[in-house]
Amino acid sequence: MKDIVLFFYTVAMVWAVLTLIPPVAGLGNVVKIIFFHIPTAWVAVLAFLLSAYYAWRVLKSKQLSDDTISSRAAGLGLIFCLLGTISGAVFAKLTWGAYWNWDPRQITIFVLLLIYGAYFALRSSIQVKEVRARISAVYSLLACVVMPFLVFVIPRFYFSLHPDPIINRSGTIHMDNIMIIVLLLALLDATCIFLRCLYWKGAKKI
């Protein structure tokens, strides 16, 4: 039942983005990529934080079920992170003329990809389940400490073309009401899809 509701919700979101969003001056229909890019990037960060939270629980409780969820969150995070990176690169090509120019946000998402990659490389090279759970949990937490430096500090020292987050420092919002509503609903949709996959009972153990 949940899956059917989620499916129709997602179809409705695609329809809403394709028809309800008006073309924006200067960007045209390219603006529609944003409604895919922001939710995927948000879920990539959420997955990273959830993975670290379950890693902390692994260290506290030594339960292997927590490790399963932690690694599944990282796996889903990797997929969403790739989608966010690709959609961001396409948007950059269409608006600024290059797929990749080491913008601070691109550095951040690239390092996030590297961390996910390193996490799975580490997991696959350890055989004993208990040891693998403990060591990958420690790595996950270490990466979680590095992340704030990349997200908040590096953009202050490099010039960025990336627009501010929706609510920028002055607290104003540069969007129409309809766009904000669609964006928030898209964020909710992506989060629901992520959580549904994360806590899916039938999923194979990674």
Partner: peptide, 25 residues
Amino acid sequence: FLLAAHNQNALFMVISFPILLPLLL
């Protein structure tokens, strides 16, 4: 981290790069 792992030398490069990147930059 490498104590429990195999393919140790290659793995060290992979796991230390993202963590050391802010320092390097």
